[in-house]
Computed example of a mutant assay.
Amino acid sequence: MSDVNLIRNLSTLVALRNSELEKLQTAQAAKEATAERYRKTLERLHGLATSSGPSGSLPLALAANCGAYKQAVLAMADSHRLDLTMHEADMAVSQRALNAAYVKREVLGQVLDRKQQVVTSAKHVQERKVHDDLATQLWLRSQK
């Protein structure tokens, strides 16, 4: 495979890795926003449970109703806490995938840079050789 084709293929791979990286970053940002919504919902549920007041000072029917309400809100908060924990675990897995994609992209970028440097260096050597040949021909002609 010629150097030009190799560089073009490596450039395409780097571009693909960049798009994969951007996609993973977008997904991670969306997951972080979801986690933040879970946290805010948990704060609101805690506020609902504490703002309903003490149920012991109320008449029996109202106290039972208030107790059931608090119990339901606390159960919902527990469910959300569990969902948040699972979501954070999923975010950790996604973060590892994001890190791996970043490393792959960086490695390919470094390979591309090195190959471009090799090709550029080879071009410069070729150009110097041509200039040296021309200079030699010019010198030989001036000797005649």
Rank of each mutant, 00 (worst) to 15 (best):
residue 7 I to C: 01
residue 34 T to L: 12
residue 64 A to E: 14
residue 125 V to T: 11
residue 120 T to N: 11
residue 31 K to H: 06
residue 65 N to S: 08
residue 81 R to W: 00
residue 66 C to Y: 10
residue 74 L to M: 12
residue 40 K to W: 07
residue 56 G to M: 05
residue 130 V to W: 12
residue 1 M to Y: 14
residue 92 A to V: 02
residue 111 V to H: 13
residue 38 Y to G: 07
residue 103 V to N: 09
residue 73 V to S: 02
residue 87 H to A: 13
residue 144 K to T: 12
residue 3 D to Q: 11
residue 50 T to N: 05
residue 68 A to I: 02
residue 130 V to Y: 14
residue 41 T to M: 07
residue 101 A to F: 01
residue 113 D to Q: 15
residue 94 S to E: 08
residue 89 A to V: 06
residue 31 K to E: 06
residue 24 L to G: 03
residue 107 V to I: 12
residue 54 P to I: 04
residue 9 N to H: 10
residue 69 Y to F: 15
residue 84 L to N: 06
residue 141 R to L: 11
residue 35 A to N: 10
residue 29 A to W: 01
residue 97 A to Q: 14
residue 90 D to A: 12
residue 131 H to M: 10
residue 91 M to S: 07
residue 4 V to A: 13
residue 126 Q to W: 10
residue 108 L to H: 09
residue 43 E to Y: 07
residue 63 A to E: 02
residue 72 A to H: 04
residue 61 A to C: 06
residue 39 R to C: 04
residue 38 Y to I: 03
residue 74 L to N: 14
residue 14 V to I: 02
residue 114 R to Y: 07
residue 41 T to P: 00
residue 85 T to D: 08
residue 30 A to T: 09
residue 69 Y to N: 09
residue 47 G to S: 10
residue 71 Q to E: 11
residue 80 H to K: 15
residue 119 V to K: 12
residue 14 V to P: 00
residue 114 R to W: 06
residue 113 D to L: 15
residue 2 S to W: 00
residue 66 C to F: 11
residue 47 G to A: 10
residue 86 M to R: 13
residue 28 Q to K: 10
residue 73 V to Q: 02
residue 122 A to E: 15
residue 18 N to G: 08
residue 88 E to P: 02
residue 8 R to T: 12
residue 71 Q to D: 11
residue 67 G to N: 15
residue 78 D to C: 03
residue 18 N to C: 12
residue 99 N to F: 05
residue 10 L to D: 03
residue 88 E to R: 13
residue 87 H to S: 14
residue 126 Q to G: 08
residue 32 E to T: 12
residue 125 V to L: 11
residue 5 N to E: 07
residue 124 H to A: 07
residue 69 Y to V: 01
residue 18 N to E: 15
residue 109 G to E: 05
residue 13 L to F: 04
residue 51 S to D: 15
residue 22 E to I: 04
residue 99 N to T: 14
residue 43 E to N: 14
residue 126 Q to D: 10
residue 26 T to V: 04
residue 21 L to W: 00
residue 57 S to P: 01
residue 143 Q to P: 02
residue 137 Q to I: 10
residue 117 Q to S: 05
residue 19 S to H: 13
residue 1 M to C: 12
residue 56 G to S: 13
residue 42 L to V: 03
residue 3 D to W: 09
residue 123 K to N: 15
residue 83 D to T: 04
residue 48 L to W: 04
residue 72 A to N: 08
residue 14 V to F: 00
residue 16 L to D: 12
residue 144 K to C: 08
